[in-house]
Design a protein around this nucleic acid. Sequence first.
DNA 1: CTGTGTGCAAAACGTTTGCATGCCT
DNA 2: AGGCATGCAAACGTTTTGCACACAG
Lengths: 140, 140
Amino acid sequence: MNTVDNLVERFRSKKLKITPQRLGIFRILESNLQHPSAEDIFSKIKKIYPTVSFTTVYKTLDILEKMGEILKITIDEERKHYDPNTNTHHHIICLMCNKISDIEEEHIRPKLPRGILNEFTPSSYHISFYGTCKKCHKNK
Amino acid sequence: MNTVDNLVERFRSKKLKITPQRLGIFRILESNLQHPSAEDIFSKIKKIYPTVSFTTVYKTLDILEKMGEILKITIDEERKHYDPNTNTHHHIICLMCNKISDIEEEHIRPKLPRGILNEFTPSSYHISFYGTCKKCHKNK
DNA sequence: CTGTGTGCAAAACGTTTGCATGCCT
DNA sequence: AGGCATGCAAACGTTTTGCACACAG
């Protein structure tokens, strides 16, 4: 995702309106590494802008996703999460506290077996590592 | 997952009852490579045992998952899928027809950067490859 | 015969939609 | 002023639950 300022410009150039609700959502997402769910975003923005609705949150997230500004991630059984980091990267998920953290792509480049490449043309991939984070490991 | 016979034995040893419904679900799952959803399983078993309910399907899948006989997979935004292959393996997902296929682990062994291993103890991982399958590639 | 499993109906959950009103541009 | 955005309420699809009855052991 771009900076809030950038996003505002992109919205303007698409003739989409800049409302306080949208601006609030932009700010919450900007450089957010927490992989918030719609609910997370909703409760944060509600503190600033108490009359906001879930509908607006979902609709704004939907626009941002369609514009390619954020990713909707489906790792959690319970609910979807949103990620403003749209570069290829991967996730580590703590099975005890459910915290999701990023891993930048860097060295991780799994190769598909050649036989499969005849059957399938990959365009992207995603790795989920499951395990225990330092904090939870100590508390065990 | 084990064979149906094996499963029956394990159920017996846990004092769980073997009903025709459960047996039907076992048979549908046995060596099933299709990653069926609850709905897929329900409609298959309904042909054999027309009075079966969704409830029974979900409850049976839940028991099997808790026993570690099947995996619940969360790759599809829409619904959960079930996989009787509980060995470490990965998935390729065709973005056009949504078909999910398996990739046995073999050569794919992504390594986490050393810095992260200090913060996080991985216990398992899963890779999703997204792309286009041969059939859909042709139809484009 | 006993207690677990079944299946109905209803609820729960996250998410989406229709529509009248509000407000950005 | 015009039209897109908002927010309510209702609908949605999947999954879960409570409960009376059925049936495997």
